[in-house]
Design a binder for these strands. Structure first.
Length: 318
DNA sequence: ATGGTTTTTACTGCGTC
DNA sequence: GACGCGGTAAAAACCAT
């Protein structure tokens, strides 16, 4: 990494020293962690697990107080992104037969250039990159359809890369792995999108996404927590045109009931739907079970069961 | 594959507008 | 009579083993 000004080194040291404190290896529990001087990765001395990948500063350096300073301190090139199959770092060969000064090239040079272009075309199209490009394209497409924030897209892209590097793809469809990576990214970031929602915009069917997702979670050892039901509330509320009084009440219901007992094993969406139904009822903004069930995509029976439990837990009787 | 749990499907009865 | 709600039994889906 070029261009590390004096301010930034002290800044970095402070940051890493801070985070190296009281970090334990999730694998073996050892506190003996070292930072690899070459790669910048945080590695466990006991078992060799890489706990943290190298952190790369992507933005411009520090702060700039004037135009000249900004020029001086900014890094070269665009920020890297996991969303581009080459992280935005490949060589681009211009299509114009001009040199850097805009002069025409000699015939020999032109021929050489032509050959180089051909090479690059081949390299790019080839196996390894092809599936990556396809997958990342699909991740973008599905993400747009699902209105996912950029961070989630990047997470999905990174997960796909890891799977790819682990040799997870052979024997599976790229599309299925891409879809699973996307769903996993949503889960990891707590962005409420159901498996159904994801498989609806995927080109492979729900069962395959589910199956692949499970395997992917095992393969990459992703610890995935269940969704917080409250995350589903805003969507349901807005689709039913209920006020935010209802929304707040529903979240309250979830907080109070989830704390004491059973969300475990229950579908978070069903739980949220029930809370919305109950909240609407308490706020005199009636929504029918049928409508709530329809927009939340759960069965009416589930709403009944959940909201009875919630009402009971809150000491309300019907 | 298996078994336990949760969700869905389908159907029925009751009260109200 | 249609609608909202509640209950139930059986099938399907899910999940850990």
């Amino acid at each position: 990494m070029p261009n590390t000004g004096p301010e930034s080194t002290t800044h970095d040291e402070a940051a890493t020293a801070e985070s190296k404190e009281r970090r334990v290896c999730p694998e073996c529990g050892s506190e003996d962690l070292v930072e690899d001087p070459d790669t910048g990765e945080l590695v466990c001395r006991e078992c060799g697990l890489v706990i943290e990948e190298a952190r790369v500063e992507r933005g411009p350096e520090w702060r700039a107080y004037s135009a000249e300073e900004r020029e001086e301190k900014s890094r070269v090139g665009a920020p890297t992104t996991p969303l581009r199959h080459d992280r935005g770092l490949t060589t681009e060969i211009d299509w114009r037969d001009r040199d850097a000064y805009g002069r025409a090239l000699s015939p020999a040079r032109r021929e050489q250039l032509e050959r180089m272009r051909e090479w690059q075309r081949r390299l790019r199209a080839q196996g390894r990159e092809r599936s990556l490009r396809y997958a990342l394209g699909e991740i973008q497409r599905m993400s747009s359809a699902l209105d996912l924030p950029r961070s989630t897209r990047e997470e999905a892209a990174t997960l796909f890369r890891r799977a790819h590097e682990r040799g997870f793809l052979p024997g599976r469809s790229v599309e299925a792995v891409a879809s699973s990576a996307l769903y996993a990214a949503c889960r990891r970031e707590g962005i409420p999108r159901s498996l159904d929602a994801v498989s609806n915009v995927s080109r492979v069917d729900r069962d395959e996404v589910a199956r692949t997702y499970r395997r992917l979670v095992r393969e990459l050892e992703l610890g995935i927590a269940p969704y917080d039901p409250a995350g589903f509330v805003p969507q349901i509320v807005s689709e039913l045109d209920l006020g935010d009084r209802v929304e707040r009440r529903a979240v309250e219901i979830i907080r109070e009931t989830a704390a004491q007992d059973l969300t475990s094993g229950k579908s978070p969406k069903g739980f949220a739907a029930a809370a919305v139904y109950l909240a609407a009822r308490l706020c005199d903004e009636h929504a029918t079970q049928r409508d709530v069930a329809a927009v939340a995509d759960v069965a009416e029976v589930t709403i009944r069961d959940r909201y009875h439990e919630q009402a009971h837990a809150l000491g309300i009787e019907y």
